[in-house]
Design a protein around this nucleic acid. Structure first.
Length: 930
RNA sequence: AGUCCUGUAGCUCAGUUGGUUAGAGCGCUACACUGAUAAUGUAGAGGUCCGCAGUUCAAAUCUGCGCAGGACUACCA
């Protein structure tokens, strides 16, 4: 029953059966002015249990009514008892009746006995406890119950009126509630079904039939199940009130898929309910991931705790170590082999056993060879007969222990504690964390917790991760039957363990269900692993060229300090989230750092320092910074990508990352202000690039200036700090900071709803509308005075400067873009100088591409000659920027030789280049032999 | 039947104490950029924040009732 999928929705024949009330002192009030015979209605989804009925259970505090009506099958007049709140389920309100009411006495008399619009009338209302003690006639008198006074109405607090009639047909043989309530009232039991699921011989025409058609061998099941046959019989007897198919969840065998029958069996229980409060209290100290499983599913389970039924009727497993006398007066639970041998010795002495079957076992010898000499499983233990204190023979209880007990006993059993290894056990208990599927809530998670609470008064684990399921990519459960199961080995072979794991961890938290889609793995490979690999390759390429060895004086730049600040922020975040069993948040932070911060920003902006600048403190700083970042990323990602990170770390450091100590972040290196102004720089860059795109100016074309209006000192300071960075990134010559008070700016005003809402309450909407409609003059007034009075809905309110956000929206005459409060204006007018510089850049770009195409090494020097093309602007651009061109392209050509009338006689392949619309040139390029 | 989880763009997911223009990546379209990068940038298209009702000046967010998918389960007549 602990297997998934045991409960399935099935349609069964359900019956509302009519139990005929016996007229006596207790039932007299039901017979007063009765209409035909008097019945109590009870509903069942298992009609096959009706012959075993022994009692009817009502809710003592529930309201019941007496209804006069007709039998829908025989049309005989009759009086019926059921719960008041269930009336609507069985009696239709007459058409035309507005008060939800009943038929009139006249309607009852006029009934045509055609089964249509059956009239009914309530006549009397009472509590359930008034029904208790009433006797009724047995429905199917095939056999009589034993050991009690059956066929009466009893009270039970488990009765509800959610469905059925509010009266529970009670067959103590088939249900725990029924058994319990029947015992309380001394009802006795009647079991007309055998352990194979067939009716017993007493059952007359039904004898030998299986109670569930599913139990028959394929093809041999009768057309009508006994449920249907019994229902027909009830109709014929005039004892059926309603027969219909009813869909409900019913438990099935996990192995054969067949419906399960409940039988009362004697069982041994662990009385966990005695420690319920401790179980609940200790659970509250466990770090559940997710928390809701601990408080919800598991917490609710503990609140409704039942005793642990330890018995299992199987052959293989751990035998119950309980011996008992035949009269059940004396019993003994054995706690160790040592004790067992002592008891066997007593038994041998008393003569109930001939010899000790475990004679070869040496007490206190914990070696495997010693334990290998004995077998304490069935059938050997079943042959052991012990002797009680009173001298009577005791035999072992034949049941086995629930295998979940083994799982829960794992922390002790693995060390053979308490027989040895006490120190080791205490060092390792309780566990720091465990992880298993969420379906183990009532399984492993519970048994560990129960046994630890009962035996150690402790939790068994400090944290528990309850993993969700891996579903297929459309969210269906994977199953071999549906053919949508992913082969883990093929997947690992195809994508590698690291990529698969990184995908699984970064995509969804372990406790969320994962929709597994292999395309997600390739995305992880493409984004994270390739970015990391490329960044390392970049580093290695230049580090090898320059012979970087990690030493040397280094002077950190702003962007070095920035990436190190980001690195330490990520280390802090990742560390905290790993510690809190939130690997998904950690993985995403690491991935974003590598892809966005390190690869797309730091390396892109700093690559010139690696391949262009002179050896020295600046270059050292760049190498050391990048090395540090890669080293830390490898350590941070080691728990999720153990292979890739180890290779990376070995290449960087020379040893295994898995032998390194977990890195600790450095708070001093974290500079939030620096990180924030870099975000500003990134936003500004985006805005300028967006204007360039809009205006059709390529990034290689330098522009004169950009302007940024600022409203506060912090912003001004930040802009000053990032000025050079932004200018070089967007290829603009000058950054002008505009004071917000400058009149030529137009401004936009927006209410700060959070602040304003708190003060304005219901006036909020009107105030907001007024504010949005402000003129430039009104905005200026508010800025100047810091506050202003508004008349809204006949009331005067005061608007404060802080209640609104004022941003510069536009700079007249310039091309503008904005993102939230940030606005940039770009001067896009060009002059000859800028145009020529743009041409030079364009030329360099083409030559670099050519170098690459020809397969030159990065460090190769070249000879470069450019043929005059008669375009004065182009030739002037080359002459003016000759130094820049030769330096960028690693050309050894002198400035005088760069621009030539003809390329004849010059070494190297000649190539025509298109620079831009209507401008092309011819160059000669050759590699200088080293 | 109950308990719990999930539901936001075509897909995978963020979304803070409720704050008014709901975001990212992938995918798609166009353009640009590039001597680390099959990378990247910019722009565009793409939303009933599962539905309904309520609370509130204000709801993806809080409450209730539902719907859909998933998991589990002592009783379940």
């Amino acid at each position: 029953m602990n297997q998934p999928g045991t409960y399935k929705p099935v349609k069964d024949t359900s019956v509302v059966a009519m139990f005929k009330v016996k007229q006596d002192h207790a039932s007299e009030f039901l017979f007063k002015d009765a209409f035909g015979e008097v019945f109590i209605l009870a509903w069942t989804t298992t009609p096959w249990t009706l012959p075993s009925n022994c009692a009817l259970t009502v809710g003592p505090k529930l309201d019941y009514v007496r209804v006069k009506s007709f039998n829908p099958y025989t049309h005989e007049p009759q009086t019926m008892v059921l719960a008041k709140s269930r009336l609507g389920a069985y009696f239709k309100t007459p058409t035309g009746s507005s008060d939800g009411g009943e038929y009139t006495a006249q309607a009852l008399a006029d009934y045509k006995k055609d089964g249509k619009n059956i009239p009914w009338k309530i006549d009397g209302e009472f509590y359930g406890h008034q029904l208790e003690g009433i006797r009724y006639e047995q429905l199917f008198p095939y056999a009589q119950p034993e050991g009690g006074d059956a066929f009466k109405v009893i009270g039970g607090d488990f009765v509800t009126t959610e469905d059925g009639t509010g009266v529970v047909h009670t067959a103590p043989s088939f249900g725990a509630d029924d058994m319990r309530v029947a015992r309380q009232h001394g009802i006795g039991t009647l079991t007309l079904v055998d352990l194979q699921g067939r009716f017993t011989t007493e059952m007359g025409e039904f004898a030998g039939k299986y109670v569930k058609n599913e139990y028959y061998i394929n093809g041999q099941a009768p057309e009508k199940s006994v449920d249907v046959e019994l229902s027909i019989k009830l109709k014929e007897m005039g004892r059926a009130f309603k027969v219909e198919k009813y869909e409900h969840n019913y438990p099935h065998c996990w192995r054969t898929d067949k419906p399960i029958l409940y039988y009362p069996l004697d069982s041994w229980f662990v009385r966990v309910t005695a420690k319920k409060d401790r179980l609940i209290a200790l659970n509250k100290t466990i770090n559940w991931k997710p928390e809701s499983t601990g408080t919800g599913r598991f917490g609710n389970w503990l609140e409704n705790l039942q005793d642990w039924n330890l018995s299992r009727s199987r052959y293989w497993g751990i035998p119950l170590p309980i011996w008992r006398t035949e009269d059940r007066d004396e019993e003994l639970c054995i706690g160790s082999l040592k004790q067992l041998k002592e008891e066997i010795a007593r038994a041998v002495k008393a003569g109930v056993m001939k010899e000790d079957p475990y004679a070869s076992f040496k007490v206190d010898d914990m070696s495997d060879t010693n334990y290998d000499t004995v077998d304490i499983h069935r059938p050997y233990v079943d042959n052991i007969v012990l002797v009680s204190q009173g001298g009577k023979p005791m035999k072992r209880e034949t049941d086995l222990i629930d295998v979940w007990f083994d799982s829960g006993a794992m922390p002790y059993a693995q060390w053979h504690y308490p027989f040895e290894n006490e120190a080791t056990f205490k060092e390792n208990f309780p566990a720091n964390f465990i992880a298993e599927g969420v379906d183990q809530t009532r399984g492993w998670f519970y048994t560990l917790h129960a046994i630890a609470t009962l035996t150690q008064d402790s939790v068994a684990y400090k944290a528990v991760v309850s993993n969700g399921l891996v579903l297929d990519k459309v969210g269906q459960k994977m199953s071999k039957r549906l053919g949508n199961a992913v082969d883990p080995f093929k997947t690992l072979d195809a994508y590698g363990a690291d990529a698969v794991r990184w995908y699984m961890i970064s995509n969804a938290s372990p406790w969320d269900n994962l929709k597994f889609d292999a395309e997600g793995i390739t995305e992880v490979q493409r984004k994270f692993f390739r970015a990391l690999f490329n960044t390392y390759n970049f580093f290695a390429l230049y580090a090898n060229i320059d012979g970087f060895d990690g030493t040397g004086e280094a002077s950190l730049t702003e962007s070095d300090r920035w990436i190190l600040s980001r690195l330490n922020s990520v280390m802090k975040l990742a560390d905290a989230n790993y510690a809190d069993y939130e690997p998904t948040i950690a993985a995403r932070a690491i991935q974003d750092f590598v892809v966005e911060d390190l690869s797309n920003w730091y390396v892109r902006l700093n690559r010139r320092r690696f391949w262009k600048s002179e050896q020295g403190a600046d270059k050292n700083a760049a190498f050391q910074t990048l090395h540090r970042c890669l080293e830390m990323v490898s350590m941070l990602s080691a728990p999720i990508a153990p292979f890739f990170s180890d290779r990376l770390y070995r290449d960087l450091v020379g040893t295994s990352v898995h032998l390194s100590d977990w890195p600790k972040h450095d708070d001093v290196a974290i500079d939030i202000e620096l990180e924030q102004r870099t975000v500003l720089a990134q936003k500004l860059t985006s805005l300028v690039l967006s204007i360039r795109k809009k205006e059709g100016h390529r990034v290689r074309q330098p522009l004169r200036k950009m302007m940024v209006p600022v409203t506060d000192a912090t912003m001004r300071k930040r802009l000053d700090a990032i000025r050079e960075l932004v200018l070089s990134e967007v290829n603009v010559k000058e950054l002008v900071i505009l004071d917000a008070s400058e009149s030529k700016l137009t401004k936009k005003i927006k209410p700060d709803f959070k602040k304003l809402g708190a003060r304005m309450g219901k006036l909020m909407k009107s105030v907001a509308n007024t504010v949005v409609g402000f003129s430039q003059a009104q905005i200026a007034e508010l800025e100047a005075n810091g506050s202003m009075k508004l008349a809204v809905e006949g009331q005067e309110v005061e608007l404060l400067r802080d209640d609104v956000e004022i941003t510069a929206e536009n700079v007249p005459g310039l091309s503008v873009a904005s993102d939230g409060a940030l606005t940039v204006a770009l001067d896009i007018t060009l002059n000859e100088t800028l145009i020529q510089e743009g041409i030079a850049r364009e030329l360099v770009s083409r030559i670099q591409t050519l170098r690459k195409e020809r397969g030159f090494e990065i460090t190769d020097r070249i000879l470069l000659h450019i043929q005059r093309n008669g375009n004065a602007r182009f030739e002037e651009a080359v002459e003016r920027h000759s130094g820049y061109i030769t330096a960028e392209t690693l050309a050894l050509t002198t400035d005088q030789q760069l621009l030539m009338d003809t390329l004849e006689g010059v070494s190297g392949g000649v190539q025509d280049l298109d620079l831009e619309e209507g401008l092309s040139c011819r160059i000669a390029l050759s590699r200088v032999v080293r």
